[in-house]
Every structure is written in C-alpha cells, then in structure tokens.
Amino acid sequence: MSRRRKSVAVALLLTTASAGAAWMIKRRQDGRRPHVGLYFEDGSMVSLPDTSPQATQLVELGREAVAIVRGA
C-alpha cells in the first residue's frame, strides 16, 4: 500500500472513530436530559417536548419523587 493511501485510510479511520464517539457522547447526554414518556394502552408512546408546560410540571414532580427516595 502506497504511503498516500495509508494516510487516507488513517484519516478515514480517525474521522469515523471521532464521529462514533461524538454520537455516543451525545446519546448519553440526551439520556441524562430531563424528559417525559407517556405510554398509552394501545401501545403507542408520546415523548413530551422538554419545553412544554406539561413536561416541566411532570419533571418537577419526578425530581420531587427522586428527592424523597434519596433523602430517606
């Protein structure tokens, strides 16, 4: 393999690895962001936008519930 091809392969590998790592970090951060999922009897699910007043209220209650359990 020529030197030039080797460099391209290494660059591609580094780019792919960086993109993968960034995707994984973002996914993990998203998972840690407050969110609300409502699951209905018909099997469907709605994720409330975290800016909606309903989600804000539910997240606040969720924090309260977690604090009660952690504080006990």
Partner: peptide, 25 residues
C-alpha cells in the same frame, strides 16, 4: 398530571409513565 396531558392530547388511557431527571428516573 400525566392523565391531564393525555386528555389534552386526546389519547387512549395511560398505561405507563417515565419521568427522567438527571438525578434518577
């Protein structure tokens, strides 16, 4: 509160709720 949201959304009865916070779910 979830039931109130359900009514506003006009959906089926709620079976499950997940509230995720940075401290716990």
């Amino acid at each position: 509160a979830a039931e109130q949201s359900r009514v506003e959304l006009g959906r089926e009865p709620i079976a499950q709720v997940e509230v995720a916070t940075p401290e716990g779910h």
